[in-house]
Computed example of a mutant assay.
Amino acid sequence: MRCLCDKTLKLTYADAEGHCGYQCQSCGAIWLPRKFIDSIKHTYHFSYIDFIAKRLLLERDVFQLCPDDGHTLKDYTLFEASFSECGCCGGVWFEKGELHNLLQNYESKSSDISALDKLDFLNLLNF
């Protein structure tokens, strides 16, 4: 996968804001595949269904393509955080700081397990 800002840069697997994702080391943007978005519920009081229901669609003249499958991303806002989502694969693109802005609106759950350990466990279960 490549960064939306600079197609020459590969996204790297990283712990971003305490969650697993793919991050651009240059601009700091984060790509969270659909299953990674849903896994936020393990560290925050977060519901994917509420996330989908409460977001507001933004109309933009510039279109970006999903770094995972090439479909057009739609722009949304929720709690003053802006992000782009792929309607096909459900992945979400956050510009630098936007995931942090979003997560500030959810109460965290206490846990001693790191985000990368959780993802490894979920992948083991074929989540």
Rank of each mutant, 00 (worst) to 15 (best):
2 R>L: 10
3 C>F: 07
3 C>I: 06
3 C>Q: 06
5 C>M: 09
7 K>H: 13
7 K>N: 14
8 T>G: 03
8 T>H: 07
8 T>L: 05
9 L>C: 05
10 K>I: 08
11 L>K: 07
12 T>L: 11
12 T>C: 10
12 T>H: 09
13 Y>M: 08
15 D>W: 04
19 H>Y: 11
20 C>G: 15
22 Y>L: 09
23 Q>N: 05
24 C>F: 02
25 Q>Y: 04
26 S>A: 11
26 S>C: 03
27 C>V: 00
27 C>Y: 00
28 G>Y: 08
28 G>Q: 06
29 A>M: 06
31 W>L: 06
33 P>L: 11
33 P>V: 08
34 R>H: 15
35 K>A: 12
35 K>M: 12
35 K>H: 14
35 K>Y: 15
37 I>Y: 02
38 D>F: 03
38 D>S: 09
38 D>P: 00
39 S>Y: 04
40 I>N: 03
41 K>Q: 12
41 K>G: 06
41 K>L: 06
42 H>W: 06
43 T>R: 13
44 Y>M: 07
44 Y>G: 10
44 Y>R: 14
45 H>M: 11
46 F>Y: 02
47 S>F: 07
47 S>P: 00
48 Y>R: 04
48 Y>G: 01
49 I>G: 05
49 I>W: 00
49 I>F: 03
53 A>F: 09
53 A>G: 14
56 L>A: 12
57 L>Q: 09
57 L>P: 08
59 E>A: 11
61 D>A: 10
62 V>I: 15
62 V>P: 00
64 Q>R: 11
65 L>N: 14
68 D>L: 10
69 D>F: 01
69 D>R: 01
69 D>K: 05
72 T>M: 08
72 T>P: 06
73 L>A: 03
73 L>V: 02
75 D>R: 02
76 Y>I: 02
76 Y>N: 00
76 Y>H: 09
76 Y>D: 02
77 T>S: 15
77 T>H: 08
79 F>W: 11
81 A>C: 15
82 S>K: 08
82 S>D: 15
83 F>V: 02
86 C>K: 04
88 C>S: 15
91 G>H: 04
93 W>R: 03
93 W>E: 04
93 W>K: 03
94 F>L: 01
95 E>P: 02
95 E>Y: 04
95 E>S: 11
96 K>V: 06
99 L>C: 06
100 H>D: 15
100 H>A: 14
100 H>L: 12
101 N>W: 03
101 N>V: 08
102 L>F: 07
103 L>G: 00
104 Q>L: 13
106 Y>A: 06
110 S>A: 11
110 S>Y: 09
111 S>L: 14
112 D>C: 07
115 A>D: 04
116 L>T: 14
117 D>Q: 14
117 D>W: 05
121 F>T: 10
122 L>A: 10
123 N>W: 07
123 N>F: 08
125 L>I: 11
125 L>P: 01
126 N>Q: 15
127 F>P: 03
